[in-house]
Simulated scan of single mutants.
Amino acid sequence: NQMIARIIMEEAGIEVDTAANGKIAVDMVQDTNYDVVLMDIQMPVKSGIEATKVIRNELKLNVPIIAVTANALKGDKEKFMAAGMNDYLSKPFKLVELKSKIAGLTGRQEAVEDPSPIREVNNNRDATGKLCDLSFLQEVSNGNDDFVAKMIEGFLEHTPDSLEKITRHAENKQWDRVRAIAHKIKPSIDFMGLKSLEQDIRLIEEYADDQTNLVEIIALTQRLKEVCEQAMQQLRKELSQFAQ
């Protein structure tokens, strides 16, 4: 998810630093005068909310902070604002949304531009039977084939490990770990246009969080694994077309 956000911003000419966890994020904000901080709510060591409270209450810094979450539920916005954040984005977000938020917080109106017309990308390809709808990736990249190829490569690289872990944790009834991985891979499912899994991945996260419908979680994770494996086979073929 961090890689996806980074590539989206770098494609727009935004200079980006990334932190592996909330503690490192706090240290980086303390040492560097950033224009804006995108704060992932779910990070190891310190959560996004915990890191923001340190930045506001201990470091006394006023750098604009935008919460980034894959699951903006009712009441979350108020929670983010109470912690000291200035705004929030729900993943997956579009570049124009990010630019608008940054412009609103920094006063840099030049950051908001009407996106250039999206050119047709490989529009002669037959989408029948494809599990992934890449139109969202093509939209956020403004038809940049290299960008879409990087996203596919990242999905192919990282998804197998996540699938192995989530199915194993479900079989072992480690529901907190199931929920964490479901939350982690949910934006990737959305970005890759895996429409048939968008509801499933949200149900897995919800059921694991509430520890309800536990038998169904196991069935859903098995389906998640099977559909993703089929999709990855198709995406490997798709990559060769982007390379042409």
Rank of each mutant, 00 (worst) to 15 (best):
M3P: 02
I4V: 15
A5D: 02
R6S: 15
I7A: 12
A12R: 14
T18A: 08
N21H: 15
V36G: 04
M39G: 01
M43P: 03
P44F: 06
K46W: 14
S47A: 04
G48P: 06
G48Q: 03
A51M: 06
A51Q: 10
T52I: 04
I55A: 01
N57P: 05
E58W: 02
E58C: 00
L59A: 00
L59G: 04
K60I: 01
P64R: 11
A67S: 06
A72C: 13
L73M: 13
L73Y: 10
L73C: 00
E78S: 14
F80Y: 14
A82I: 09
N86H: 06
K94E: 11
L95I: 14
L98K: 08
K99N: 15
S100L: 01
K101C: 07
T106M: 13
G107K: 06
A111D: 07
E113I: 13
S116A: 15
I118G: 09
G129W: 03
G129R: 01
G129Y: 04
K130E: 12
S135K: 00
F136D: 15
V140W: 03
S141D: 01
D145V: 04
D146L: 13
F147P: 04
K150I: 09
E157C: 04
T159S: 10
D161H: 06
S162L: 08
L163G: 01
K165N: 02
H169S: 10
D176L: 05
V178C: 03
A182L: 09
H183P: 06
P187R: 04
F191C: 13
G193C: 08
L194F: 05
L194V: 12
K195F: 14
L197K: 07
D200L: 07
L203R: 03
L203I: 00
I204Q: 04
E205C: 02
D210K: 08
T221H: 08
R223E: 06
R223C: 00
V227R: 01
Q230S: 14
Q233N: 12
E238Y: 08
F242Q: 03
